[in-house]
Computed example of a mutant assay.
Amino acid sequence: MNGALRVPVLVAGDFVLRPWRMEDLPLVHEASSDPYIPLLTSVPAVYSDEAGERFVRRQWQRASDGVGYSFVIADRQDLPLGVMSLRMRDAPEGRASLGYWLVESARGRGAVAAALRAVSTWAFEELSIARLELYVEPWNTASARSAERAGFQREGLLRSWQRIGEERRDMTMYALLATDAREAAAPGSDPRGGASG
């Protein structure tokens, strides 16, 4: 991708994906106290307002540099719940990858699956992406269920794929193709992923 990107607002059922604001620092603060999120992301493990502001600026910089989109997942009252990122490094090949997290207080409400559906539809229709990928640790059944609810299919295990904290860990790859999304949206299709009738 060349040039700066504009992060849009996307409606995701009962949730909204929107650009970051400095008023979202409480979200970064809560995420920093999670035992897992700082290991997997650039969320500061020890929170300070200065560290939180640097994190928010990094989210803005991704779009400014043209390398990806970083959304806040918020509820309809605009309470920030988590993050959805779309990384565009492989966009010239028609691929992009997704990453996401929710703070503990926001889990169990279907926000990730709704956000994945919204950003996937947008990426296919507006950005002409053909394939979306995401990676989930094999033990993370809640994240895997969210991916599957959004139509992503498990493709296989990537051994020692990613460094998390001090160790390399296996990741399960999930993918959703633009053709999968079109077939699921076709008249007469089952919204759970199979053809009806």
Rank of each mutant, 00 (worst) to 15 (best):
R18Q: 14
L134W: 03
P44I: 01
R131G: 03
R89V: 10
A91I: 06
L40E: 14
A113E: 02
P38K: 03
R57I: 08
S42M: 10
A123L: 15
M173T: 02
R89S: 15
P8E: 01
G52D: 00
L39T: 01
Y69Q: 12
M1L: 10
D90H: 15
P8Y: 01
R6L: 12
N2I: 02
L10N: 12
D190C: 00
G165D: 03
R6I: 14
R89K: 14
S97V: 11
A114P: 05
L17H: 15
R169W: 13
I129D: 00
L40K: 04
R76D: 00
V28A: 06
I37G: 06
R76S: 00
R182I: 12
V9T: 09
V7N: 03
E125P: 14
S146G: 11
Y174N: 07
G197K: 02
S120W: 09
L177Y: 11
R109A: 08
P8R: 06
S196D: 07
V136A: 11
L40F: 09
Q59M: 10
A178E: 15
G193L: 04
L81R: 04
R145D: 09
R95P: 05
R89I: 12
R159M: 02
Q162A: 04
P138V: 01
V119H: 08
R107C: 03
S48W: 06
D170V: 01
Y174P: 11
A147M: 02
S146E: 09
R145Q: 12
Q61G: 14
R149L: 10
I73D: 08
A185V: 13
A118I: 10
D65K: 07
T179G: 14
L25Y: 00
S32K: 10
A118F: 15
